[in-house]
């Protein structure tokens, strides 16, 4: 029983990170119908920037003070927001009306540019990094609550609630939802769709940066290819919940985290990477629009 609870706790903390990344995929897909392949690499940049910022300021990349961590976090999120803005502006906007496959290829190009540009700039070897101070795990009658895990979960949930608030209860959120349904009609309402799309990219990238920092605290190391697998899995989470659907991405992320942790715990950790793709295939066979997604028939 304790073992199961332990897996659930670990799974939720991992799942919360997936959910944070998945939100970026799902929001961008919502407004542009584009899988932003580079999203996982923005996640990597978030962790990287955090590493460099804290190495520069505190002289060491581990065990910083609370305020140091907060400052590094905000800085890294800001940088990634700018990167997200530039990616959209330079690589995706000129292709807004091109066939989707072209945007997809460009997105893959951007992703590889960040990964291999990163390998050349940052070096290919992993660097140890953890933005959160190391503390003893809390012990609740055998159930070990990792300090990092708790922070990861709480911060993720808080960010998701803020996002939920933005998307569903603000003017700009309403505009985002309008653009995601039909950008042309939205522009007839006086909505500057270019601005909304840029805003969406920035928002998604900021969340990805936060996820990158949290991920690097949970698995304390950073390297240029670290975004690939979490990025792919978060995409799976977004599809699982119903791509384009904000609550769906959160649900999908948490479910995926749980599933991975349970497979790793009760079966074999070497197959945990396969879980995400197995779930993807199952959901695509059973309900291609995702758990919370709606299916629209193509208009003929």
């Amino acid at each position: 029983m304790i073992e199961l609870l332990q897996h659930i706790v670990d799974g939720l903390s991992l799942g919360a990170i997936y959910a944070l990344i998945a939100l970026g995929y799902t929001m961008v897909y919502g407004v542009l119908k584009l899988i932003n392949f580079a999203h996982g690499d923005v996640f990597m940049l978030g962790a990287m920037m955090g590493y460099y910022a804290s190495a520069k300021w505190s002289g060491e990349a581990q065990n910083p003070s609370f305020w140091g961590a907060a400052l590094v976090g905000i800085l890294s999120m800001a940088i990634c927001g700018v990167v997200g803005f530039i990616i959209e502006r330079v690589a995706y906007r000129p292709l807004r009306n091109a066939p989707r496959i072209n945007s997809l290829i460009t997105a893959i190009g951007v992703s590889f540019l960040l990964e291999y540009g990163g390998q050349n700039l940052f070096g290919p070897t992993p660097n140890p990094f953890g933005i959160l101070p190391r503390r003893e795990a809390l012990n609740l009658g055998g159930l070990s609550l990792g300090y990092v895990d708790v922070i990861v979960f709480v911060v993720s949930i808080a960010l998701m609630l803020i996002l939920q608030r933005i998307v569903f209860h603000t003017r700009i959120g309403t505009a985002m939802r309008a653009v995601s349904w039909n950008a042309q009609v939205a522009s007839l309402m006086g909505i500057n769709t270019d601005f909304i799309i840029s805003f969406t990219f920035v928002l998604g990238s900021v969340l990805a940066a936060a996820a990158g920092l949290l991920y690097a605290s949970k698995y304390p190391s950073v390297h240029p290819l670290m975004g690939l697998m979490p990025g792919l899995k978060a995409f799976v989470a977004a599809v699982l919940g119903g791509i384009g659907n904000v609550p769906g991405a959160m649900l999908g992320g948490l479910l995926l985290g749980l599933a991975e942790q349970l497979v790793a715990g009760y079966w074999s950790s070497s197959w945990r990477d396969a879980v995400a793709f197995a779930m993807l295939i199952i959901i695509l066979l059973v309900k291609p629009s995702g758990i919370l997604g709606r299916s629209d028939a193509e208009k003929v």
Partner: peptide, 28 residues
Amino acid sequence: KPSLRLRGDYLAIVTLGFGEIIRVAIEN
């Protein structure tokens, strides 16, 4: 068979994922 019912961008991710799974399977 299962993934080609999907549109191009989904397919891309599925094939990428499968490519990786095949590699993981070989490694194991």
